[in-house]
Amino acid sequence: MNDQTQDWDIGRQGRRWTGPEGLAKLERLPGRLELVQGKLCLDDAERWTLLAGLMENMGLDEVVQFGKLEDWQQAIAARVEGAAKPPTPAATDVPASHWNCRVIEFPSDEETWCAIHEVYYEHGTPVAYSSSPAAPGWTTDDGPEAGLDRLEKFREALRKPVLKVSAFEHVGAKAALLDKLGQMIEDCGGVLDRASLSAWLEAWLAEPLPELNGAAPVQMLGSEEGRDQVETLLERMRGGLPG
């Protein structure tokens, strides 16, 4: 049983959520639905929470109407045998995922403009941002200090370096490079700090390099050949990597 589903009351019949319990359960569900690298929600923890909430609401008798009966039978048999183990978030020194407010720069043919958006991070790497700018609003249930708290988050965003919208491009390639860098550092006996390594990689990718005829490594990530060139450069830098 996944940790995210243990305290949900999932039975054969669905349960209605009413009163304070209903509001509490609603608060636990993901606040937004996003597609990240082809998957619904932002990480496995949110997917398990959303799935558990729907199953408690609908009941197992309704849920098993989806899919093929033989698949359900095989899945149940696998669980009985202890073979099916749901994925769990990897343990890291930094949060596996989190949101914060950041200023993002958006270039255009006419002018470059900036806005504060909510940015989603995986292991310190920005991978997605809210489609609309972050709003300064709050609900009356949030309390009298909610407005000041919201403004403080905006002030924190303004104090941090501005993110380029290009930081959200080639997310899969950047994640692969980060994994490769981490392995290289561990192979050399270094201490892996994934958050610091992610920040270093983001800065290095944006820097024009003479080895790439003045192009920044991030410009090369759109093709397999370019990604191979970037990996080769990192291999040559093995002794000078952080950590």
Score class of each variant (00 low, 15 high):
W8Y: 08
R12D: 09
R12S: 03
Q13C: 04
G14W: 06
R15H: 10
R16E: 11
P20K: 07
G22K: 04
L23C: 03
A24F: 02
L26K: 12
E27K: 08
R28E: 07
P30I: 01
G31P: 01
R32L: 06
L35P: 01
L35R: 01
V36A: 06
V36I: 11
V36C: 02
Q37R: 11
G38P: 09
K39E: 05
K39I: 08
R47Q: 01
T49R: 05
T49S: 01
L54C: 04
M55G: 06
N57M: 14
M58Q: 13
G59P: 04
G59F: 02
L60I: 10
V64H: 09
V64I: 15
Q65S: 11
K68R: 15
E70T: 11
Q73V: 13
A75G: 11
I76S: 12
I76G: 10
I76D: 08
I76L: 14
A77W: 01
A77G: 11
A78D: 11
R79F: 15
V80L: 14
V80R: 11
V80S: 08
E81M: 08
E81L: 12
T88L: 14
T92Y: 12
D93R: 10
H98V: 01
R102I: 00
I104Y: 04
E105V: 05
E110C: 00
T112L: 03
W113H: 08
W113V: 09
A115I: 03
I116A: 09
Y120N: 00
Y121I: 00
H123G: 07
T125Q: 15
Y129T: 01
S131Y: 07
S131K: 00
A134Q: 06
G143D: 13
P144C: 00
E145C: 02
A146K: 00
L148C: 10
D149Y: 07
D149P: 02
E152T: 08
L158A: 08
R159I: 02
P161S: 00
S166H: 14
A167E: 13
A167L: 10
H170C: 00
G172L: 15
A173I: 09
A173S: 14
K174E: 03
A176D: 13
G182L: 10
Q183F: 12
Q183R: 15
V191Q: 13
S196W: 11
L197W: 05
L197F: 02
E202H: 13
A203M: 10
W204C: 09
W204Y: 09
L205Y: 09
P208S: 06
P208Y: 09
E211V: 15
G214E: 09
P217Q: 12
V218P: 12
Q219R: 10
L221G: 13
R227D: 06
D228E: 14
V230W: 13
V230R: 14
E231I: 10
T232E: 15
R236S: 14
G239K: 12
L241Y: 07
P242W: 04
P242I: 00
